[in-house]
Simulated assay, not measured.
Amino acid sequence: MENYFARLLLTSELDDPIYFAKIHQQIADLEKKRVKQFNEQGPMNQAYLLVLNALNMAYLQARDTEKELEIAQQIYATNQSLYGDEHEYTLEALLALGLSYLDDGQAEEALGIATSLLEKPWTETLGESYDIYLDVLGFQGDIYHAKKLYDKELLIRKHVLSLLEELGGSTSEQAVLARCAVAYCQEKLKKYKDALSHYLVIRSFLEAEPEFATEAEKIGLLVHIGRCYRKLGDFEDSKAIYHWAYRQANTHYGPASSLTQKMKRLMGSLETNAF
Rank of each mutant, 00 (worst) to 15 (best):
H145W: 15
G169T: 08
H145C: 12
E153K: 14
R157Y: 03
E166I: 01
E166G: 08
K148H: 09
D142L: 05
K148L: 04
K158H: 10
G169D: 08
Q140K: 10
K158I: 03
Q140W: 01
V160G: 06
K148V: 10
Y150V: 07
E166N: 11
G168E: 15
L164N: 10
S172I: 03
T171W: 05
I156R: 02
S172Y: 03
S162Y: 12
S162Q: 14
L155E: 13
Y150N: 07
T171K: 08
I156T: 11
A146F: 06
E153V: 02
T171N: 11
H159Q: 13
Q140Y: 01
G168D: 13
Y144L: 03
L161I: 06
Y150C: 01
S172P: 03
D142G: 00
K158G: 01
E153D: 13
I143C: 00
G168I: 06
R157Q: 12
A146Y: 05
D151C: 04
G169V: 06
L154T: 05
S170P: 13
I143A: 02
L164Q: 15
H145T: 15
H159A: 08
E165V: 14
G141P: 12
R157N: 12
E166R: 05
R157G: 02
S170Q: 09
R157P: 05
L149N: 06
D151R: 15
L155H: 13
I143E: 00
H145D: 15
L163C: 10
S170C: 04
L154G: 00
K158R: 11
S170N: 09
D142H: 04
L167T: 11
R157A: 05
V160M: 05
E166D: 09
L167S: 13
E153P: 02
E153Q: 12
G141L: 08
K147F: 00
A146H: 07
S162A: 10
T171P: 00
L167N: 06
I143V: 05
I156P: 01
L154I: 10
E165C: 11
Y150R: 04
K152A: 04
S170T: 08
I143W: 02
I156G: 03
H159I: 02
L149I: 01
G141V: 10
K147T: 09
E166A: 08
L161Q: 14
L164C: 13
L163H: 10
R157S: 07
L155C: 06
H145K: 12
K158L: 12
K152Q: 14
D151E: 13
L163A: 13
A146N: 06
G141D: 03
I143L: 02
V160R: 10
G169I: 10
G141Q: 03
L155W: 06
S162N: 07
K152F: 05
S172K: 02
H159E: 15
Y150I: 03
L154N: 08
D151L: 14
I156D: 04
K158Y: 07
V160L: 11
